[in-house]
């Protein structure tokens, strides 16, 4: 059962009608196939046009869609193997940030990413993808290890932000994020990041300070959530749609600003409508980027990454 977003209502109505007709045609003798085909075409067209013209706020909702695939789904569908590695060796093993050795189209990589979970139990276990200091410290550990063993680093970013809690502050959330960003920038192996859902602020950039940053067509990436921005600047969270617009947080805006390098197309109607196709597109795009980086020397990779951030936003 698909869960529809507000702006998908017309599509939902059509699809409900199609389901009804299909049920009726199965039971009865009336041939409804031509009527069905017509409606299905209409519904597909409507979905295409709706998704071609999503507003930034609508994209935010798609990026947060409860059925949107997450880290574990991509691991299962785009990678041949995943050997999870756990723990920061200081405090614990944060389930909001997962990582391990993985094979992508035959290539051995270190894979790290946020996992939000997909039902109540797993969402709680993964803390809704909001990393704690030990999660970022695990990421640091794995990145350093990747550097030592010559494995390219791939990160899948999907978080509303780092966890805002008392224990997280006590254990140095800010320091952990800063050090994780530093660990990205110190890598002498290729690093490719993909914003697959929400790229929420410092909690995202800590895993996305790479020389190549990809983004799914309907993913969002911003300095603060639209609700947070609206409640500070407009003094009401209800202005979130305006804030989403003003912040330029869509893949289409960010490629123009030079903040991301490449948009990975999603299946019509968003990644949640066809997770397998989304995973294939993602895996393919990451592989291509790793291919392109594989000829560079460690020094070139380091400089490429540094220059990317030193010059970012200078022109537009």
């Amino acid at each position: 059962m698909i869960s529809y977003l507000d702006f998908e209502k017309p599509v939902a109505e059509l699809e409900a009608r199609i389901a009804e007709l299909r049920a009726a045609s199965e039971g009865g003798d009336v041939d409804l196939s031509s009527e069905l085909a017509k409606l299905e075409r209409k519904s597909a067209d409507l979905l295409t046009t709706t998704y071609a013209a999503l507003t930034p706020w609508q994209k935010t909702q798609v990026a947060r869609h409860p059925s949107r695939p997450h880290f574990r789904d991509y691991v299962a569908m785009a990678f041949e193997e995943f050997v999870p590695l756990g723990g920061d060796r200081y405090f614990g093993d944060d389930q909001a940030i997962m990582g391990g050795l993985a094979r992508l189209n035959g290539r051995k990589v270190m894979l790290i990413g946020h996992e939000k979970g997909n039902d109540t139990e797993s969402r709680l276990r993964h803390n809704f993808g909001m990393g704690k200091p030990e999660g970022y410290r695990k990421a640091i550990r794995l990145m350093e290890m990747a550097g030592r063993f010559g494995l390219p680093v791939v990160t899948l970013v999907d978080t509303s932000g780092a966890f805002p809690g008392v224990e997280a502050e006590e254990r140095g959330q800010a320091e952990a994020i800063a050090r994780s960003t530093e660990a990205c920038l110190a890598l002498r192996v290729p690093m490719v990041s993909a914003i697959v859902g929400e790229g929420g602020s410092g909690g995202a950039v800590a895993l996305a300070s790479a020389e190549r940053v990809l983004m799914f067509e309907h993913a969002v990436y911003s300095v603060i959530s639209p609700e947070g921005c609206a409640s500070i600047l407009w003094r009401t969270a209800e202005k979130a749609p305006q804030a989403a617009e003003a912040m330029k947080m869509t893949a289409q805006d960010l490629v123009q600003l030079g903040v991301i390098d490449r948009i990975v197309p999603e299946p019509t109607g968003g990644a949640h409508r066809d997770p397998q196709a989304a995973a294939v597109a993602l895996g393919g795009a990451i592989s291509e980027e790793l291919d392109a980086l594989s000829q560079k020397t460690p020094q070139e990779l380091l400089r490429l990454r540094e220059e990317r951030f030193l010059t970012m936003g200078a022109e537009g």
């Binding site: 800063a178 920038l185 911003s222 300095v223 603060i224 912040m247 600003l257 970012m312």
Partner: peptide, 18 residues
């Protein structure tokens, strides 16, 4: 971060870290 500069303010984090 300065919200009025959106993502470009976030990008100052890795920039300063370089």
């Amino acid at each position: 971060a300065r919200m009025q500069e959106g993502i470009l303010s976030l990008m100052q984090m890795p920039k300063a870290t370089v």
